[in-house]
Amino acid sequence: MASDPPVPSRPTTPRPLTEAAFRDLYRRLRGRAPEGGENRRGALHRLTPERVVAAAAEVRCGRTVSLAATVETRSAPDSPEPASHRMTAPAHGETGAPGLVFARDRFAMNVHGDVDSHLDALCHVIFDGELYGGVPASTVTPAGAGALTLDLVRDGIAGRGVLLDIPRLREVPWLDPGDQVTAEDLVAAEAAQRTAVGPGDLLFVRVGHRLRRRTLGPWDVTRARAGLHPTAMEFLAERGVSVLGSDGNSDAAPSAVAEVGFPVHVLAVNALGLHLLDWLDFEELVPHCERQARWHFLCVIAPLRLPAATGSPVNPIALL
């Protein structure tokens, strides 16, 4: 007799957290952070050479897939200050000249905007006057950050990426703005996708933001966006995740904590020492994972070498 089909996970409405409850969660998670010399690399200390080698060994077909969105250069509700790109050469009429001519251009970006894919360094989030590991916020000055900067990942990040697709779990194309992903959602997605998140993994959580944006158009994500509920960060701490990425910015809006606008950023970066990847794009990756029935892959992340920076545009690559 055939078994009944699995019942899709339905969205629940997690309770908002009081400031006191959030601070208690913050203290618990901060207590899980590494101590001693390892703490300056944050959760990357779990991404050992052995785990990188194991991740590389799982490449099957050699297909590469970008997890970054196309850089936006036009103003939109979620991009009031878009990246700028302009040609600086050749000059008008120079293309028809004989001999050598170079085409040149210039690019500028608000790294921590709400549309372009980027990586958050550990110096990006200040909470109660401190950075991750109790580093004084005074190390961040107008001249640049002096500790926990992008320089920590100047050699790149490579490891086992795992994609958990929450809209797929709930049998919807995307999560609506304001929806929140719980730890129970993450566990259920693991089971549905027959995968598991483990120590040192690069965890990617799809909320369907990019598909919704392409289908319905951009909107003001500062007011409403899907993301993780703060208590979901306990799942990441228990599994020993090294990096967190999403096709949103991991935080839902409105915030589950009225007094803290970006509670997941605080818990991930400031408490747990996780580098965050915001505003990624998983829409090309998902069909490959479905065809292979494998939701893990080697992932390589190569930020720019900006030693005193708090973040960088980034183009993560999944190798399947």
Results as ranks from 00 to 15, higher is better:
residue 147 A to V: 04
residue 259 E to H: 05
residue 92 H to I: 01
residue 205 V to M: 13
residue 161 G to E: 13
residue 262 F to P: 00
residue 187 V to D: 09
residue 102 F to C: 02
residue 88 T to R: 05
residue 12 T to F: 10
residue 226 A to W: 00
residue 179 D to F: 00
residue 214 R to E: 15
residue 174 W to V: 04
residue 55 A to E: 02
residue 109 M to Y: 00
residue 66 S to W: 01
residue 191 A to K: 13
residue 163 L to S: 10
residue 301 I to A: 06
residue 305 R to W: 09
residue 56 A to P: 00
residue 267 L to C: 13
residue 72 E to R: 14
residue 136 P to H: 08
residue 148 L to Q: 15
residue 313 P to L: 12
residue 314 V to R: 07
residue 99 G to D: 01
residue 297 F to I: 05
residue 120 D to W: 05
residue 31 G to F: 02
residue 114 D to L: 14
residue 163 L to H: 10
residue 75 S to W: 04
residue 153 V to A: 13
residue 165 D to K: 07
residue 5 P to F: 03
residue 121 A to E: 06
residue 86 R to K: 05
residue 166 I to D: 05
residue 10 R to T: 12
residue 192 A to K: 08
residue 305 R to K: 09
residue 76 A to R: 10
residue 15 R to I: 00
residue 168 R to Q: 09
residue 257 V to H: 06
residue 283 E to R: 09
residue 247 D to N: 07
residue 67 L to M: 08
residue 71 V to R: 14
residue 146 G to I: 03
residue 128 D to C: 11
residue 223 R to C: 06
residue 165 D to T: 08
residue 93 G to C: 03
residue 303 P to L: 03
residue 216 L to A: 14
residue 273 G to Q: 15
residue 11 P to A: 15
residue 30 R to M: 09
residue 211 L to H: 15
residue 166 I to V: 14
residue 136 P to N: 11
residue 142 P to V: 05
residue 280 L to F: 06
residue 102 F to Y: 06
residue 255 S to P: 15
residue 272 L to Y: 04
residue 269 V to T: 14
residue 89 A to N: 02
residue 110 N to A: 09
residue 191 A to R: 15
residue 34 P to V: 13
residue 160 R to I: 00
residue 205 V to R: 04
residue 318 A to S: 09
residue 319 L to V: 12
residue 71 V to K: 04
residue 147 A to S: 14
residue 259 E to W: 06
residue 228 L to G: 03
residue 218 P to I: 08
residue 149 T to G: 10
residue 300 V to H: 15
residue 307 P to R: 12
residue 307 P to G: 10
residue 106 R to T: 07
residue 63 R to W: 08
residue 20 A to Y: 12
residue 91 A to C: 04
residue 252 A to Q: 11
residue 90 P to W: 02
residue 217 G to P: 09
residue 245 G to F: 01
residue 76 A to S: 13
residue 118 H to C: 07
residue 173 P to W: 03
residue 10 R to K: 14
residue 177 P to I: 04
residue 5 P to W: 04
residue 278 D to G: 06
residue 249 N to P: 02
residue 200 G to S: 10
residue 153 V to R: 05
residue 50 E to Q: 10
residue 180 Q to K: 10
residue 169 L to F: 05
residue 83 A to V: 02
residue 8 P to L: 11
residue 248 G to D: 06
residue 241 V to S: 12
residue 185 D to V: 01
residue 16 P to M: 03
residue 36 G to Y: 03
residue 277 L to M: 15
residue 14 P to K: 12
residue 266 V to K: 15
residue 73 T to R: 08
residue 260 V to H: 06
residue 251 D to Q: 09
residue 312 S to F: 13
residue 173 P to E: 04
residue 248 G to E: 03
residue 184 E to F: 05
residue 79 S to R: 10
residue 122 L to W: 02
